[in-house]
Design a protein around this nucleic acid. Structure first.
Lengths: 125, 125
DNA sequence: CCGCATCCGCCATGATACTG
DNA sequence: CAGTATCATGGCGGATGCGG
């Protein structure tokens, strides 16, 4: 975190990493999905179950997001050849490594909410 | 992190926090801007300087993002009545509280990059 | 220098319906 | 059940130009 080089605004490396991070996790759904699978990693979770438990997500989005998460080795898929077919989704070890990051986000979000609500309360009084 | 309630997929609270978090930080730029101001908090930073140091951002976007960050009390503005006017941007204490979150993101991003590059290398050999 | 206005393309997301 | 196909749309974000 030290801009040791001469000019202002070096630390491009950090900015680039952040950009990479953003590219992977952009969009409304992926982080919620990973958190969900992370929390329920001891259960057997099928496609429709996820869709039911993440309010507002459509089949299309869920399918797309899961595909991208799989490409990034964050979840894995197991097809059960029953009739009709069922597809199980699991979080990978690598996917689980994201849980602490999500936790940091959540804690910050709560703290932020408290601060903003405090400001609003002060304004209204 | 424990789904103690009966059904699968409780922990709605966590998901909601995550959604709030996403709403605040949506888009390509805000996190980069906060990190930039956080790193350079000991320097005097004007609008144009930020635009120069965050590659690719336009005036419009920078202006819009800064406004939203200001509303959320993450940055503050000081207008210097010179001719022409200069506007200084500072990170707030609350804004600084985001630095650890950004750091977590960066570290995870680096680890992820390594893992993916490893997989690609294995495939090509 | 700072930032707003305008125009515009494109992509993410949503709604709905449909297959194996 | 697990998606895919199609269409619609709103907002993100880029380009350019203007005004204080």
């Amino acid at each position: 975190m030290d801009p040791s080089k001469g000019t202002i605004g070096d630390c491009k490396e950090l900015m680039l990493s952040l950009r990479d991070f953003g590219d992977i996790w952009r969009g409304k759904w992926k982080i919620q999905i990973i958190l969900y699978l992370s929390i329920n990693k001891d259960k057997t979770i099928y496609f429709t179950q996820i869709r039911r438990d993440i309010p507002g997500i459509s089949s299309k989005m869920l399918s797309k997001e899961l595909k991208e998460l799989e490409i990034n080795r964050l979840v894995s898929r197991i097809v059960h050849p029953t009739i009709p077919v069922k597809v199980e989704y699991l979080i990978t070890a690598h996917g689980e490594s994201f849980a602490p990051v999500a936790e940091t986000m959540i804690l910050w979000g709560l703290q932020h909410r408290k601060l903003i609500l405090g400001i609003i309360a002060a304004l209204n009084q």
